[in-house]
Every structure is written in C-alpha cells, then in structure tokens.
Write a protein that binds this DNA or RNA. Structure first.
Lengths: 341, 341
DNA sequence: TTGTAAGCGTTATCAT
DNA sequence: ATGATAACGCTTACAA
C-alpha cells in the first residue's frame, strides 16, 4: 500500500497541493478557510497521512537528528551519559545516532564524516584516548554544525565543553585518605594521554603536597593496557613487594580498585585496616563488592543532560542565524564513602 | 561557506548538472568521456563536494539508517547487544538511531512512530516488559519495513526473532546444582510477563522434576519491583526464615543473586557450603565479587550481530522486491561455573 | 481564500 | 557523449 502524500489528499479533496499543505500546517496565520481546513484534515486522517520527513528534511536542510560519538557504550559511565542524552534529545524532538570510537582516533574521524554526510543538526563527542589531531573537529565547526565535547574534551577547540572536575575530586579523595591517617598512599593511574587520567594524578599529587607528604614517584603505577581489573590485581602484588609499608591505594578507576581489593582479600590483607582503597567513577559493581568501595561519583546523567541542552540551544541559535557564545561547564564530582577506607 | 552542489560544479566545469552527476557516479557504464570525468572529479575535489544525502534519501526513499528500541542502555546485556549492533551496522553502511523504552509500553509505541516518521530502513526491538498489545509492531510490518525482535520477543508477531534459549540454560544451571548434591533449591524469579522470566522459571521446574525433586511453590519468590538487588537481599532473609534448610538459590538475574550473596555474607552463611547461589546473565560485576558468582552467560554480542545481520538482509531483499522468509534464531547460552556453587 | 510555480539536490529517462 | 526534463514530497513567495 503506497503511502499517502499531499498530492493524494489534494486529489481527493479537490484542492491544490498548496492549499492542502497550508491546511495541514501548524502555522496558524496561513489563510485557509476553516471549512477547507477541516475537510482536508479529515481526509488526511482518513488516508493515514504522515508527512514525509525526508522531503521536509531536504526542504529545510534539517534532520532533527544529532550524532553522538563516544568511546564505547559498554561502560557504566558512558551508558549513563548516553541514556540521558537520548532521553533529553527525544523530549525535544530530536533523535540520536550513536557511534562508538572504541578509543580509535581513525574511527572517530570516519564517524564524524558519516555524521556530517547524514546532515545531523549537531554533534556530541567524548574524544578517544588516542585522538591527538583535531582536524575532524575543526571540519565540523567550519561547516557551522554545533559541536559539544564532553568528558574527554580538548581545550584548544573552539566549541562548548562539559567535563567533570577530576583534579578537584581526586584532591578531595586523597585528602580524605590523609585525614583518616593514611600516609603512604600509592596511586594506580591510567595512561598519559587521556586528560582525566592526568587530572586525577595531579589532584593526587597536590593533595599530598598540600598536606606535607612527600610525593614519591615509585608509588605510582601506570596502567596502559585495557585490562584495568587485571592491572589492579597485579599492581597490588608488585606494590606490596616494593613497598610493604604502604597503607592506602588511590586508583584512577573503580575497576582497577576492584582488582586491587580482590588481591588484598585473597591474601587476607584487611581493608581498610591494613590498606585502604579508594576508586574513581562509582561503577554499579562498586557498591556490591565487599567491602563496598569508596569512590568518586561522577555526575554522568547530569553531564549528558547539560551537553544536549547546550547543543540544542546552539542548534536553535544557529538556525535563527544568531551568534552564540561557547560555554565551558565543569561539573563537580562528589565523594562516596563506603567501607574500603 | 555554502556547501557545494552539483550545480556549482556544473557551472565551474561548463557542463550540465546531468553530466556532472554521471561523471561522479559509481555506475561505470554511464557514458561520459574519460576527459570530462576527470575534469569534473577534479573540480569536485577542489570544491570539497560531498553529495547531499538528504536529496539522495528523498530520491531513493532510503536512509541507510536503522532504529533500535531497547529497554535501556544502562544494562550490561543491552549495552553489549547495542555495541555490536552499532558496529555491525556501521560496517555495512548503516547508522543506528538508539531509543529506550524504559520498560514502558506507551514509550515504545511512540518511539516506533518516531522511527517510522524518520523513514528508517528497518527496526530492531527488544520489547518492554509491559508490552501486551502489539498493534505498533503490526503497523511496522504493514508498511513493509523489516522488523527483527530480539531477546524480549513476541512469538505471535510475524517477523524474524533472535532469542536465547533461556529455558534450556536454566535447566542446565539447576541440573548442575542438583548434581552437586543440592536438594532444596529456591528460585527468585522475575515478574510474570517477560517471557525470559517465565522460561527460566520453567527450566528450573523441569530440572527439578526430571531429577525426581518435588517442585515446591513456597520456594519461589517473585520480584516485581525494579530493585533487583534489594529484592535479592530481602528475599534471602525471608527465605531463611521460612525454609531454614534450603541449600541453594537459583536467581533470574545476577543482580538478585548478588543481593542474596551479600545478605548471606553479612550473616556469615558460607557460600557455597551452606547455601549455593547461581545467577543468570553474567554481569561484569559477577566475576568480581567474592565468592565469584556462577551464572549463565548469554551470547549478547552474538545476539546483536545476528539480529542486524538478518535485518540488513531483509532490507536488501525488500529493496530488491524479493520475498523473504522470516527466521527464528534461538542462541544457546552457556554455564559459567565460579565459586558460588 | 486559493492556486501557480519555483526550489531543495539528486538521479533516471529520454532526447540530441 | 552530453543535456533537457521530470520526478521524489514538501514549502513558500507571489499571483489570482
């Protein structure tokens, strides 16, 4: 069964396509007599008319679609962000095309092109760890497509950004450990590139220094594989061998922390009495293991919400040909203290 | 800077739009002289021409976009499925619009309409628990849009389906518990509606019967809130009060099992010596808690992969006006035995 | 109040 | 080998 178009309605109603279009338009001040309007609308309903979005898209050069590129959806944090992005976008009449870079810069670039081809109205990106060249982002901007970076952002790019104050959160977490009497605090950090990893590391260092504890580089272990959990486990083993007197571990992610906890438990080392553990991210898992992991709660949903909100505003401004200022939002994270410290 | 169109190239090259279109087309046997072709392609590159997909979409009535509706992305299983769907779709030139029903039937219906309006080429749905009326699915089919249901499927709908053999997996899990000597096995099940919950329950029952154990309805606890974890915890408490001699618990999801484990641990009940626990779904968490949870691994990625594969095939057939047969794939699940039993 | 015609950017058909 | 024209379905000046 062929889908009905304005033409079909026009034929049936005995009006021109134009009049039918007007009669069906939301636009109130489009002179059509009440009678015609009703007749047309009635026929439209009878024939199950739905406007062909493709045609409207072409006409308006808008798709009411936004694209999202994130490292992966199989990750609590990103899943929560995406969840809120989809919800909020839909509530505002936008659909979301989701894409995953899997931390590959090349994939990210390709996906930007796909979205540009698709003529999405705006793009949201959480950069891959690997991304060091930003021409693809500049390309988006040069086409005047609104772009908002979130979580993994790049300061040098001239677009709105939403991120979490990782450094501050790490600072607070380590300060908390210190306030509990811990003095020799190891840090299991992530690779150098992602800004978040660097920020958390710096927060750690600053907390030590501010509290008069000497920063000891040998207490730092860098995870650059993708197996956080295993790294947490093996780093702890190594750490205990190298620093038997360590009394706390602060990790860059919960997963690493959980690996650490499992090693400690397997070797009957008491948490937090012998060694305290502090994670970062508040994975679902973290509240369910025992001892439950103290960690930093990142405002994931909030991040998604703010990112779409800004993007949609920019899309609107853009459409109305108005200039808009880019915004850089830094959301606060908060400590969640459980039993592991 | 205005985006370049065929018109711009035509003007610059001194050819008609038609010729330019032909010169740029993939279609080889479209008589254009080698010289013109090269000239046109050169100019196209110079002007950074990219075809306007919107126009092509309108022309072809295709969008190379598929829609996915699932209960939520914030769930290991669905995130993994979605992950693979996105990947596989993209590899085949399709983009994915993701939508979440949050287990609301009304939302699901609305989203189907959104996707239909957007003229997606095909739709993938994992039904919400609440969905009992299927007119929205029939609407999709009546428009000849390929539809594939996965995981939460509805047998009565005439479309392809991909699901997991939940009943068989539950049967094997419970049989395993029995083989380990457990005789009084409780079951924490989910609500009645989702087919998966029913299937797992039936597998449980069948295993008991087949092994000569009397099915005792008082050992069944039904979780119909959305707080699986808490239910697992409180059900265990209740269970121990009502059946102090219970020796194993089989749960409909890992989350419930983890709730149970935490209660048992808090009350120093040994796992699996006093009570064994068997979950279902293999959440990431399950391997990280202690004792690590024995569970059923569902082939999530495989499910996503198979679902898109079938959908894309049907889209192709549909486009070529060929008839196709619907397929019903049932994927096997496998037991993962860890320390909790 | 209603209708004609042009246009969005592309491609297919049919001349030339 | 190249090009004019129509068509996809809709919107919107501009006429009538």
């Amino acid at each position: 069964m062929k889908t009905t178009t304005l033409k079909d309605i026009a034929k049936e109603a005995g009006f021109s396509i134009t009049t039918v279009s007007k009669a069906l338009s939301q636009n109130e001040h489009l002179d059509v007599s009440k009678k015609t309007k009703e007749k047309v609308q009635h026929i439209a309903r009878k024939l199950h008319y739905t406007p062909n979005q493709l045609a409207i898209n072409l006409k308006n050069s808008r798709t009411y679609t936004i694209g999202v590129i994130l490292p992966t959806v199989v990750h609590c944090f990103f899943a929560r962000v995406l969840n809120r992005i989809i919800e909020k976008a839909e509530k505002n009449g936008y659909l979301v095309i989701a894409l995953q870079s899997n931390e590959k810069s090349s994939a990210e670039k390709k996906m930007v092109n796909l979205l540009l081809d698709k003529k999405v109205d705006g793009i949201l990106i959480s950069l891959s760890n690997e991304t060091k060249d930003f021409t693809h982002l500049k390309k988006i901007l040069s086409k005047k497509i609104p772009l908002v970076l979130f979580d993994k952002i790049e300061p040098s790019i001239d677009c709105s950004k939403v991120s979490v104050n990782d450094k501050q959160a790490a600072y607070e977490a380590v300060s908390f450990l210190i306030s509990k009497g811990h003095k020799k605090i190891a840090h299991f950090r992530g690779d150098l590139n992602p800004k978040v990893s660097k920020d958390r590391f710096e927060g750690y260092k600053k907390a030590l220094i501010d509290h008069g504890i000497l920063y000891d580089p040998s207490l730092i272990y860098v995870s650059n594989t993708n197996s956080d959990y295993e790294d947490g486990y093996s780093f702890t083993q190594k750490l205990l061998a190298e620093h038997p007197d360590v009394d706390a571990i602060f990790t860059v992610t919960d997963l690493i922390a959980i690996g650490a906890i499992n090693f400690l438990q397997k070797h009957s080392i008491k948490i937090p009495e012998d060694i305290a553990v502090f994670g970062f991210s508040n994975w679902t898992t973290s509240s369910m293991i025992c001892p439950a992991l103290s960690t930093v709660e990142q405002p994931s949903a909030m991040m998604g919400e703010v990112a779409v909100k800004i993007l949609l505003e920019e899309i609107r401004m853009q459409k109305e040909q108005k200039a808009y200022n880019i915004r850089e939002i830094i959301l606060p994270a908060k400590l969640i203290i459980r039993q592991s410290c």
